[in-house]
Nucleic acid binder design. Sequence first.
DNA 1: TCTGGGGTCCTAGGACCC
DNA 2: TCTGGGGTCCTAGGACCC
Length: 419
Amino acid sequence: MEMFSLTDATGCFASIEKIYEPSIRFRPVVVLSNNDGCIIAICPIAKKLGIPKFQPYFKVKHLLDKYHVVVRSSNYELYGDISDKMMSVIARFSDNTYQYSIDEAFSCFNNYEGILKDWYTYGHEMRRAVWREVRMPVGVGFGRTLTLAKAANHASKKLADSDGVAVIDDDHSRKLILQQMKLDDVWGVGKRLSQRLSLLGLKTGYDLANRSPKSIRQQFGVTLERTVEELNGVRCLSWDDVKSPKKEIFSTRSLGQRIVKFVDLRKALTTHAVKVGNKARQQHSLIKKLYIFASSSPYDERYFKKGIMYDFPRATDNICHLSSAIAQVTNTLFIEGVAYYRCGVGAIELESSDFQQQDLFIPPVNPALMNCYSLINQRFGRGTLLLASEANKEKWAMRREFLSPRYTTRWSDIPVIRC
DNA sequence: TCTGGGGTCCTAGGACCC
DNA sequence: TCTGGGGTCCTAGGACCC
């Protein structure tokens, strides 16, 4: 019988900051988003102090000062590398693992029952291995459906008597865990839905599970109906659903320094387009439509936003095609006098590159160049090969006042042990 | 001095065409 | 003369997640 697990890191980015800086291990730590905008990660110690997540940094600064909280800017180079290490450890415990986000992974176990003693023990083995090899604290949850695995993972960290592993494998454990879950802790239920559900008198995940799926469908749609089924152990989300290629790929960013020059806007947009192109190629997709936008800040007195849809005559993942599309579009996007605060690029219509419809009148593109480009950047590191129109040194680079060293990816930043 | 994340998916509504 | 359905595409915004 199939079993799923979800493993995810506790306070991921904050925990990573503690790996190479033992002196802050027992102190409250928070990590800020790009541009030091919001708090996006809090370690358990900071959480206990009541530091809120997703609040603008400057608004909670007084609180952070009060408790002497350690503040770090986000260091994605470091987080990405630690995440890779963590994922490779998790992957050893199952023959089928899928990385769901930077800090969590689903694993699928087929007919493991005969081999394993029990899921609880196995979860602890996974947990110990990640701690021993990467020094990352993780929670592991097991369930017969992906939604139950998520619920168990939540329980593994949140419940009073939890020790990092939780298993839902019968009605008893299911009831026990779901009864202690708030509505918006259920995967797929956010603030709005939980508000509406509570009007019906529902309080816990278990209340939701006991609703008739049919009536939920009528009032809230199929998505929530599936969630209800999944909470009851009926599988609606298949492994393939989770692993399916993305339908949209975006790259957007706020700018540390406002852009006022045409060339700078084009460079920033090209950089985003190349990122999107590379992601698309990785999942064997070609881009048919590209949405390109730039805006001032919504907090400005006069908010400016403009977006343009670019339709490629034939779907492509070639970064040269993307770059020339950007060059054309920037002409209409750029307006003298606007101080751009945000810009980005999104592929919103993707086609599979495995089954591509050829065009009688447009000669097919030889993929050799893009293959070679990808291989070189894989082998020698991202950014080894760049388009001339990309930004290599970003003048408008984001504000990162509290950046930690990139301990594991830069020779200059390797930790030094003094005896 | 100024500061407010990033990504994916879905749907409603408007514009346009036949 | 006046009224009208149905499809596609685009845009904006909501909802959710991390």
